[in-house]
Simulated assay, not measured.
Amino acid sequence: MNGDHEWDAALAEAVQLREQGQPEQARERLLVLARTYPQSAEVAYQTAWVHDVLGLEADAVPFYERALSAPGLTEEDRHGVFLGLGSTYRVLGRYTEALRTLRQGLEEFPGDAALQAFLAMTLYNTGSPKDAVSTLLKVLAATSEDRGVREYRRAIEHYADDLDMVEQ
């Protein structure tokens, strides 16, 4: 982290508070850390996350954006930022930004099922239900442990590409 043990401990404590179901207390501490360490992508991400937990999506956006633009996130946290920001944009009706963010996330994390699922929801919201269903069918085929889905995986993937196909 920052090499500052006090900073590390404060961040760890705030994350622990969120994980233990005390998001308000976590938010208070994270806001102080975000003011003190405005260049920290990790603090920005954790601050965004706690805002989302509290249903304060609009307040989460600038922290997600800061986290995405700053260096220093682990791969797992960077993935979380794409997912959180894309989902938050979608919930706020900012569909163009959601599509851009989720697609950028999929460029870095190709085939990620969670990013694809949120992309499908956003495609639906933007009036592209066919693309949404196609995306979800591909995720289902690729990730399902259901025996029937596994048996028909090829067919599901095939028809997902052309949902309107009718054999003559």
Rank of each mutant, 00 (worst) to 15 (best):
Q25S: 11
Q25Y: 06
Q25V: 01
Q25G: 05
A26Y: 00
A26E: 00
A26M: 00
R27W: 04
R27F: 05
E28V: 14
E28L: 12
R29V: 08
R29Q: 14
R29D: 04
L30R: 07
L31I: 03
L31M: 13
L31T: 06
V32K: 09
V32E: 10
L33E: 03
L33C: 02
L33G: 03
L33F: 03
A34E: 05
A34G: 07
A34C: 07
R35W: 03
R35Q: 15
R35L: 10
T36D: 08
T36K: 05
T36P: 01
P38H: 03
P38G: 05
P38C: 06
Q39W: 07
Q39L: 10
S40D: 08
S40N: 06
S40V: 06
S40I: 01
A41Y: 02
A41V: 09
A41L: 12
A41E: 05
A41D: 04
E42C: 04
E42N: 08
E42A: 10
E42Q: 15
V43I: 11
A44E: 00
A44D: 03
A44P: 01
A44K: 01
A44I: 00
A44V: 02
Y45R: 08
Y45S: 08
Y45V: 08
Q46G: 05
T47A: 14
T47K: 02
T47Q: 05
T47V: 09
T47W: 00
T47P: 02
T47N: 09
A48H: 00
A48L: 02
W49S: 08
W49C: 00
W49M: 14
V50H: 07
H51A: 14
H51K: 11
H51Q: 14
H51R: 12
H51M: 15
H51W: 13
D52I: 07
D52A: 09
V53D: 10
V53H: 01
L54H: 08
L54K: 03
G55Y: 10
G55A: 13
G55K: 09
G55D: 12
G55E: 07
G55H: 11
L56G: 13
L56T: 11
L56A: 15
L56S: 13
E57V: 13
E57H: 15
E57P: 11
E57K: 12
E57N: 15
A58V: 14
A58I: 15
A58R: 15
D59K: 14
D59R: 15
A60C: 08
A60E: 11
V61Y: 12
P62K: 07
P62V: 13
P62H: 12
P62Q: 11
F63Q: 07
Y64E: 04
Y64T: 12
Y64A: 05
Y64K: 11
E65G: 10
E65S: 12
R66E: 01
R66K: 14
